[in-house]
């Protein structure tokens, strides 16, 4: 950069500077003795500066506010994502705890049934259904290692008959359900003491066979085990009569029974292991 071509003599500038320097010394001395002078001047300068400062402050605070809001929104989004994932975890946890609660409730019923009766056994969780559609059976997670043997009856938490064990391995057992055609249980009507053989017919329906024509049966009659088959203990609830018909051409009545157990909702069964002792 080139310097100005019309520069005055340095001596003249120096003279001005010296004079002004002396003025400065005087002002310093004077203002030290008269502070009011500087007070008034300061106020005037402050009055001049403050509007500019205010504009800058407002502008910078708005810019800062915009970025603060942006940061807050970004933080809120991150927080929201964290909370959503936390919520998903807690929902899973909640579902698991509810499942535990339900299981606890069902197992408590089993325990209550065991305590109220003389029966002993082990609770097995249903881990599978029979793969073949024409066989009504379930697989439970207890086996011979747990004391389960072939022929052991299985009941639900209320003590209603579910079926009997037809196969058992060390860690699991197959329970043939009451509704299977191969199933047969010696039962009787609780009030009338009329006996018959119950066999499976289809899911949630059984047939009571060998009931003589002269026996009186009404819909709603309760059916319990008779204990005569040597498999099921006496007086276990089985179901209720849902249909009864006397066919004069036959020797026996046609009687249909609806089991107490809802086999579609069954999750655990109690395998009774001390049938002989009870009988």
């Amino acid at each position: 950069m080139k310097r100005s071509q019309t520069e005055p003599s340095i001596r003249v500038i120096f003279a001005h500077a010296a004079a002004l320097f002396l003025v400065c010394l005087f002002l310093t001395s004077y203002s030290s003795k008269n502070p009011k002078v500087i007070g008034i001047g300061s106020r005037i300068v402050q009055e001049l500066i403050s509007p500019v400062q205010e504009v800058i402050t407002v502008t910078s605070s708005r810019i800062g506010g915009f970025f603060d809001e942006y940061r807050a929104l970004r933080d809120a989004k991150e927080r929201n994502d964290q909370l959503l994932s936390r919520l998903a975890v807690l929902e899973m946890e909640n579902a698991r705890l509810r499942e535990f609660e339900n299981e606890n409730s069902r197992l408590s019923k089993f325990l209550s049934f065991k305590q109220s009766s003389k029966l002993q056994g082990i609770v097995g969780r249903i881990i599978g259904n029979d793969a073949a559609n024409w066989v009504h059976s379930v697989v439970v997670n207890v086996g011979t290692n747990d004391g389960v043997a072939i022929g052991n009856p299985a009941v639900d938490s209320a003590g209603s008959v579910v079926g009997r064990v037809v196969a058992a391995s060390s860690g699991s057992a197959q329970v043939l359900l009451l509704t299977d055609r191969a199933s047969s249980v010696d039962v009787m009507l609780q009030e009338r003491r009329t006996s018959g053989i119950l066999s499976g017919r289809q899911l949630n329906e059984c047939e009571l066979n060998f009931v003589e024509l002269e026996k009186e049966i009404q819909i709603g009659d309760r059916v319990i085990t008779s204990g005569l088959d040597g498999i099921y203990p006496k007086s276990l609830p089985v179901g209720v009569v849902s249909f009864a018909e006397k066919d004069s051409r036959g020797l026996f009545q046609k009687v249909l029974i609806t089991p107490h157990v809802d086999f579609r909702k069954l999750e655990e069964v109690l395998i009774i292991t001390n049938v002989e002792k009870v009988q």
Partner: peptide
């Protein structure tokens, strides 16, 4: 030089201490 002087005075006034040191 005069600009330096007045700028200094303004500086002193804004500082609110004594009038003259910055100008000097």
């Amino acid at each position: 030089v005069w600009l330096a002087f007045f700028l200094g005075l303004l500086f002193d006034l804004s500082a609110g201490s004594l009038l003259g040191p910055s100008a000097a």
